[in-house]
């Protein structure tokens, strides 16, 4: 366990409360950007696409989606700020930590608050304040500081139109990150899901899934089925076994919706089933095809196969 560095600690705490000058936007709120953003986000509301609909709406004319708030002040691909913007980075605390032993950064959360809709041609700028820096914390990722920056968005007449509280974790990783192999430049980043430990006793099960087969271990001595697989039959102690292909039909024996901690590669609300197969064995598996709020114990389900990557296919079940 590394002790927090007292000097870094004092310096970073001393920055809390610092206010940063204005950062301007390259372009005013504009219809082409709204259209592109809505296409990307799958937002098909006529309010943002149909000027006539917007005119007849309570807004009386075109407006921008409130969630575009930060879009208008983004620095762009070259990371250059528009003329007149402050030269002092609102994220100087993060930069300080990076230069002083906490090289990694992860965005933790972002809370936005909107006071009104923005209209085309409004020019938006923002000011920032370093709202808080946590004590030195140890998380699953590493040891470091939670840094919260409060951004306030203003119009050209200094009207406050929204805020954004952006929280980052600036840390030193527990162990050095070693990429397994360089990913092709055009491959989208994909969070990897946990992989199982596989032994000689269980290899057949995971190999079966890769061929879209759900296999159950069957004792050659007494014929009993068993899952999870093991080297010997608990009933007759025969070491001889074969793999039986399951029909894939079963019922939900129980289920969990996993919320916290979030597990990389899974949705934030992850439903997980305990399925009782019609052959009599049970297994844990994922759920597809239904909202988790609609799952019921006893619900009939059928297996499908989900490819995680070249090394792993997992069983998932869909209600029938």
């Amino acid at each position: 366990m590394s002790e927090p560095n007292a000097q870094v600690d004092a310096a970073i705490k001393g920055m809390v409360g610092t206010e940063y000058g204005r950062t301007y936007s390259w372009d005013p709120v504009n219809q082409p950007m709204i259209r592109q953003w809505c296409e990307t986000m799958d937002n098909e509301s006529p309010l943002y696409h149909d000027p006539e609909f917007a005119r007849q709406s309570p807004h009386g004319g075109p407006v921008a989606p409130p969630t575009m708030l930060q879009v208008w002040v983004m620095a762009g691909l070259k990371n250059r700020l528009p003329p007149g913007s402050t030269t002092r980075s609102p994220f100087e605390a993060v930069e300080y930590l990076r230069a002083n032993g906490f090289p990694s950064t992860v965005a933790v959360n972002s809370e936005q608050e909107y006071f009104r809709y923005l209209r085309p041609d409004e020019s938006i700028s923002f000011t920032a304040m370093l709202e808080s820096v946590s004590d030195c914390k140890s998380t699953a990722l590493g040891t470091g500081y939670f840094v919260t920056v409060l951004m306030t968005f203003l119009t050209a007449t200094d009207e406050k139109v929204g805020t954004m509280r952006f929280r980052l974790f600036v840390y030193k990783a527990h162990k050095e990150f070693k990429p397994a192999a360089a990913a092709p430049a055009d491959a989208p980043a994909k969070p990897s899901r946990p992989h199982p430990g596989i032994s000689q006793d269980t290899q057949f099960f995971w190999d079966g899934l890769k061929q879209n087969k759900l296999l159950i271990q069957k004792c050659k001595g007494c014929g009993k089925l068993r899952h999870p697989p093991g080297p010997v039959c608990p009933h007759c102690h025969s070491f001889e076994w074969e793999a039986l292909q399951a029909s894939g039909r079963g019922t939900v024996h129980s289920f969990v919706v996993m919320h916290y901690p979030e597990v990389p590669g899974f949705p934030p609300e992850n439903p997980v089933l305990l399925v009782e197969l019609e052959e009599g064995t049970r297994l844990v598996a994922g759920l597809v095809g239904i909202k988790h709020a609609d799952v019921k114990v006893g619900m009939p389900v059928r297996v499908e196969y989900q490819k995680v990557d070249d090394d792993l296919v997992v069983p998932v079940f869909r209600p029938v």
Partner: peptide, 19 residues
């Protein structure tokens, strides 16, 4: 992940997010 008993055991759960 490896072939040790505990790693195999947790494999039945962590692959689905039950960690």
């Amino acid at each position: 992940p490896g072939p040790m008993v505990e790693s195999v055991h947790f494999g039945w759960y962590i692959t689905h997010g039950l960690v």
